[in-house]
């Protein structure tokens, strides 16, 4: 159940960041290297935060056998 909750939160967080990128026009400017760098960094931070969300919500699920 906690894994499911974590996945929902991860999808939500990714959607928020993805929408943010869309509204600032990332899809129109990505071929500008400065924009590409900013978008790349934003996506990386999104990924890192997603990992932390999973750790905090799902806890030690990867370490449980039973």
């Amino acid at each position: 159940m906690n894994t499911f909750k974590a996945l929902i939160l991860m999808v939500l967080w990714t959607t928020i960041l993805g929408s943010g990128l869309y509204f600032v026009g990332a899809h129109k400017n990505y071929q500008d290297i400065l924009w590409a760098s900013g978008i790349g960094l934003t996506l990386l931070i999104t990924h890192i935060v997603n990992m932390v969300i999973y750790f905090k919500v799902a806890g030690d699920k990867p370490y449980k056998w039973f």
Partner: peptide, 24 residues
């Protein structure tokens, strides 16, 4: 741990620049 993910940044920037959403 964070630094490790930052090592992946050049790949992300490259693929964003090359193809936007398709690249990602």
């Amino acid at each position: 741990w964070i630094l490790g993910y930052l090592y992946s940044l050049p790949s992300l920037v490259l693929f964003v620049w090359a193809g936007g959403l398709i690249g990602v």
